[in-house]
Design a protein around this nucleic acid. Structure first.
Lengths: 221, 221
DNA sequence: GATCTGACTGACATGAGCGTCAGTATGAGC
DNA sequence: GCTCATACTGACGCTCATGTCAGTCAGATC
């Protein structure tokens, strides 16, 4: 087969080219969803030929995993351990700073946030397991912190694991909606405050409270 | 083409046959996920021929939509409006009963719960919109209730819509984990109590609380 | 027992998306 | 200016799920 002249563009820094493809894939996944995006879509968006894609990634799944891995790493970095002994910052301050940092990462990576919360699950069983492991790590970390907090009397009684689920669920939905609704980066402060006060005090003020509630509810000292 | 004897099984009540196919699809979707399940898988599980499937459903998407619609309807029915004037039941009781009923529906339909939370999003853009509408309705309903509650002084200050997101997110994650971990139906009571006390009081007891918190935090009553 | 009707079947044609690979352009080294 | 290495290209062949439809079967009707 003789090939017509055709435009080529070799000699492009490898890292740069990979970045082009990653970005194209990320944007398409966020816009149309993983399953609705084909390799042809990605290469068209990146402005490279089909074959080029395979020079950089094994297949569609691989580029997806790559994107998620990088994002998960960023999230992990944003999570800081709370140290109750820190004399410079109160626990409350640390907790708030933590929430703020996590929200910051997600709001600065809207495409990835959307992908993580909508497409990441259901790609294939092996990946689901991998993702579950990541979630478990986060849940585990938070659970430990909560247990520790209960020991110190700064976290109310209750099954720590369940509290962790409730917290993470609330945060997830908040982030998903913030990104979907296109809230600006500035709203991070407000969201942080809302979540913090939710975790501190809930919002129901129905008088008697939990009647036969087994949990002893200790007032703010 | 002459056909060999082959086993047939006509004369099966239409509704019954449709139910067979629906059940097969539901179980497979829950086990392997929507995208990993083929029509061939479904008909094999249901014990009917490929062609039969198309007598009852337009395509794979249609049976999925059908399943989700039925489930959404059940959920909608489980949600009751809170009436503060009810002299027989306190608001606290009503809220708890509501949570309990919703958890009950999800725990009694584990397969659908898993499908709804893992595969429902990302099937195709049109269905995503449909699903978002359902979510919006639920969020809207809760938002209204919270606003009303704020007027009556039984819900703390704060953007009601955000509070709705936090609540629904917490509930979603709790349900998902409960189903994934295979918690028994009996745990519904415990989960209800945990969520209720979380909504009532949060769990952080970090002393000073929200420092420059804009929200006035009114004690019970 | 002939005919009709409606449920059901499964082989087949189709096509979307995938991964490959022989071939081309470009610049560096000699 | 020839050769080599490297980055890139895109037509091609293949797989596999899909939707169809001509044909079979069982029971009802007459």
């Amino acid at each position: 087969m003789a090939a017509r002249p055709s435009k080529k563009k070799p000699v492009a820094n490898k890292a740069e080219r990979q970045h082009d493809i990653l970005t194209a894939a990320r944007d398409l996944f966020a816009k149309r969803g993983y399953h609705q995006t084909t390799i042809d879509d990605i290469v068209a968006e990146a402005g490279v030929a089909r074959g080029t894609f395979y020079l950089y990634f094994e297949d569609k799944r691989a580029i997806f995993v790559d994107l998620i891995d990088r994002f998960n790493a960023r999230i992990s970095m944003a999570i800081l351990r709370i140290s109750p002994d820190d004399s410079a910052h109160t626990v409350a301050e640390q907790v708030r700073a933590n929430i703020r940092a996590i929200i910051g990462v997600f709001l600065s990576e809207r495409a990835m946030t959307k992908i993580l919360f909508t497409d990441a699950v259901g790609v294939d069983p092996a990946f689901d397991r991998k993702l579950a492991t990541f979630t478990d790590e986060v849940v585990g970390l938070l659970t430990e912190s909560l247990k520790e907090g209960q020991g110190l009397g700064i976290v109310a009684d209750g099954e720590p694991r369940v509290l962790a689920y409730l917290t993470i669920g609330a945060l997830k939905e908040l982030l998903y909606q913030a990104v979907t609704l296109g809230l600006s980066e500035e709203s991070a402060e407000v969201l942080t405050q809302q979540l913090y006060s939710f975790l501190s005090e809930g919002y129901l003020r129905t008088g008697a409270g939990g009647a036969r509630s087994p949990a002893r509810r200790h007032r703010h000292r």
